[in-house]
Each structure stands twice: as C-alpha cells, then as structure tokens.
Write a protein that binds this DNA or RNA. Structure first.
Lengths: 249, 249
DNA sequence: TCATATTTGATTATATTTGCTCAAATATAT
DNA sequence: ATATATTTGAGCAAATATAATCAAATATGA
C-alpha cells in the first residue's frame, strides 16, 4: 500500500463524513495507528486537513464539530460493526441497507476487500469509493433526506431483480412476536424487498430497539438468520431469539 | 522484453489500477526491480507518470482526490455557478449532471428553493438534503467512484423516462464543430440521455475545455441552448458560439 | 568483425517508512 | 477536583525502498 493511497482514503472519507478517527482508519487500511497519525500530521502540514485530538476534520471546518459529530451511540455502532465484519467474505454479493451502523461497518472494511455491493444509501456508496475492488451499485429512486436512503418503485424494482448472498439489514424496531417494523411505509417496502432478495439476512440493531414495535412490518422475526447487537450473545434480553433458533452474535 | 513493452505494461496497469508498485511489476515482467525503477524514473521525467515512494501513480491524478478537486479552480467554478443561478426557477423539474461545478451550484441554492431535481451524482443528492423543498431523485446504477457519478442501463433508463424543464450539463470538452465530447463511453451515454430528456440545455464549462475533443460524443454544439463559462460573454474565444445562435452568458 | 553504446542485474550503501514502547498530554467519568 | 482512560509524540530498531556503482549481456554501427 502506497502512502498516497492512504492519503486518498483519508481525504475521501473526510469528504464524505467530515471527520475521521485514527483507529478506524488504521483498521480499514490495516496499518498501525502510528502510521495513520503520521499521515494525518503530514496532511495537516500540507493544509489538506485539520488534525484534532482523536483524528482529523476538514481543513476549512470549524474546530468544534469533531466531538459534536461523534453521535451518542457511536461506540455502540462501532461494536456492532466490528462483530459483523467477520461475516463478510471476499467475492460475495451483498445488499447493504442504509443507516449509520452500516456506514460504520463499511468504514471498517479493509480497502483490499472485494465484493459487489448493492445499497440504497448514497453515503455508503460514497464511502466505498475508496475501495477499488468493490463494485458499487446504487438503487435509484427518491432520496429520503432525513435518513439518507433511496426509496420508491425504482429502488424496489432494482432490489427485486438481484439475488444477494447476504443482506445487512438496519433494524429500527424488533419484537419477538411482532417481527421487525419501521415507522416509514416506503422504507418498510425497501427493507422487505431486501429480505426477499437475500440468502442470508443479518440484522444489526442497538439493543434498546428490541421489544419495540412500529407501524409498518418489514419481516417476521424468523426471517432473520443472524442478529447482531452490542450485547453479549447470552444476555437475558436476547434469549428469546436463541429459542427461535436465530444465530445471535 | 523490450523497454517499450515494459512502458506499455506500466502505463496500462496504471490506467486501470491508478497505481503500480515496483516490486509487483518486477515480478510480473520477470525483470529486476532496478530496471523497473529506472523505467519509472524515465516515465516520470517524460511526465507520463508520477513516481512516488514504492511505485508510481497517474501523472494527472488530481494530487489528492475528489475533495481536493473541489478546491481546484474553485474560484472559476464559483463564478460559473453564480452565473447559472438566475436561470433556475422555483417549481422547475431539472436534470443536474454530476461534477464539481454543479455541486458548487447546488451549494449556492437558497434553502427555500423549491424544485424537483433528478441527478446522477450522490454528492449532489446529499448536498440537497439541506433543501427541504427540493424533491431529489437519484438515478440508480453502477457507481463510478472516480467521478462520483452513476452510469449504466438503470441510470440511462430512468433519465429517458423523464422530461425536464432544463438540464445542467457538465462539459469536459467542447469543440465548435466536433460538439461536446468526453473520454468515458458510459458517461457519454448518460449525458446524451440528459440532453435528450430536457427542454433547455445549459452547458457549464471552464473556458480551457473549449476547443478540446475527446473520444465519445455527447451531442452537437447546436443542441446546447445556453453556454456558461467564467469568461465575459463577448470574449473572443466564445464568438464562434454566438455565431451559432447559442446564448452565451 | 570489432569497437562502442546501451541495457540489465547484482551489490552495496543510504534513505525512508513502519510498528512498537513508554512517558506526557489530553479527554472523560465520578 | 480527582481518578481513570485514551490519545499523542518521540525515540528506536526492523523492514523496506532507493540510488549509485560496476560488470556482464546485448545491441548498434562502421
């Protein structure tokens, strides 16, 4: 890996996410944090970025934003993403649902990762621009700005025409008997299509979403093959899914 | 193995992978690394490539990625975007082509602006998430990472099914008699579809692109209704377009 | 053909890059 | 404020890349 490639990755990530942190980049690029920090220092000296404690922000950006942008659940998402990583393999065709957890997951993928990714999230597509070996297909459609996802007939249609090895499904609400639900009808349709078009369904969710229920159904609990939360697999709260023969990680 | 053949190999690899490293090339061509390094040095001196520690990268490679390209010629893009702004009106349906100039234009739109935007650029779509009154439709398809645009049948199909009031066309090369051209075939098809699907075609371009010609044709010069550059409308360089009854701004 | 260039691979010395450790600095929690 | 955790920069040794030199191989040209 050329130094220049690391620079590319850092700047690309920065342009998409407005921030990078040294440890995440180090994992994605599979080099030591020391190296990344040296890179950040160099890029800072060049004036390309602004180095701050923990990582870097865009050069022209006001300083305060870094900690601000660290969303509250960032650590939880990081844990979930880390757990999901070993389930992805080179050569697979995968449907990746929008959402910050999946975005985080994509950020952790090594740049050498090779796959075909179909996603309904422009942010995820952009993040993958650093991965030369990943073919990225974005579903078309209406852009739902608040959630950074594409919805509508066009998205639906495209997802229905593929058959993926696995689907990384972002879950907003999950109830043992009510199944997976979401408050937006259009998003429900898209997620439903994803579940329908994949061999293996991997649901990623913050444990606090478990037990909740919203208006529109995505799928039944048993449609899920693997459930990933930030909790230990043998946590009390997850036992009901064990009983239903769902793999819990 | 002729030196020329090694040069060919290096340049071809570089154009496909955006990078080469000396040791890999040396193994692939079964020659010593010293030889490859000498080759790289020579190609660098010729200006064909850019030698870096460990190998080489493309000479023209915008030293550092999309984010930086946004900075390059920023003032020129700003001027062009400013000139285009008055042509956009509330309530219109517009096709907005990818590219940094159009991205800049979108940034200048007042947040109260109201319209329907169909674009093939995830970055432009994301930029518009700040505009509550703009309905954003992203064409689906394969994500061309280096240019941040979507291409392919899906994009083509979607653009063909709409009929827009205007199209903001990013122009890479424009020649009075050869028309508008571009180096990527897939992008040419998409732009061609955009021209076909709009009532009014507004071409935005840096004046240095005028007079150039590339491999794939987008449209004839006369398909353009309005041409916007950073130059004054009565600049010598633009007179040929005046003669062809194109509105020059 | 023979003398003269040029190119190549091997060797060595030098320079750069990297990962690691650890004390100091900085952030976060109590 | 104090304690605890995380992040940082510096120094160092190992790994890796580079440039310089030279002799052998190959091409060129009278």
């Amino acid at each position: 890996m050329l130094k220049h490639e690391r620079f590319e990755y850092i700047l690309k990530t920065l342009s998409v996410e407005q921030r990078v942190d040294a440890s995440t980049v180090s994992k994605a690029l599979q080099v030591s944090e020391a190296t990344i920090r040296r890179d950040l220092t160099e890029l800072d000296t060049m004036g390309k970025i602004r180095k701050v404690h923990g990582g870097a922000i865009l050069a022209n950006h006001p300083v305060l934003s870094f900690e601000q942008r660290k969303q509250v659940n960032q650590e939880v998402k990081q844990i979930i993403a880390q757990k999901a990583l070993p389930l992805l393999h080179n050569g697979q065709v995968m449907l990746i649902d929008g959402g910050t957890t999946n975005l985080q997951l994509v950020r952790l993928l090594p740049v050498t990762f090779q796959a075909t990714v179909i996603t309904n999230s422009p942010a995820i597509a952009q993040q993958l621009s650093a991965h030369a070996q990943v073919e990225v297909i974005l579903t078309g459609g209406t852009y739902l700005k608040t959630h950074d996802v594409l919805v509508g007939a066009s998205t639906f249609e495209m997802i229905r025409t593929v058959y993926a090895d696995l689907c990384l499904l972002g879950v907003c609400s999950m109830h043992a008997t009510q199944g997976i639900t979401i408050s937006s009808y259009e998003e429900a349709l898209v997620k439903k299509a994803m579940v329908h078009s994949s061999v293996r369904i991997i649901a990623l969710t913050h444990s606090e979403k478990i037990g909740q229920c919203e208006s529109f159904k995505v799928c039944e609990t048993n449609d899920i093959d693997t459930l990933i939360t930030e909790l230990s697999p043998d946590d009390e709260k997850l036992s009901v899914f064990h009983q239903r023969k769902i793999e819990v990680i």
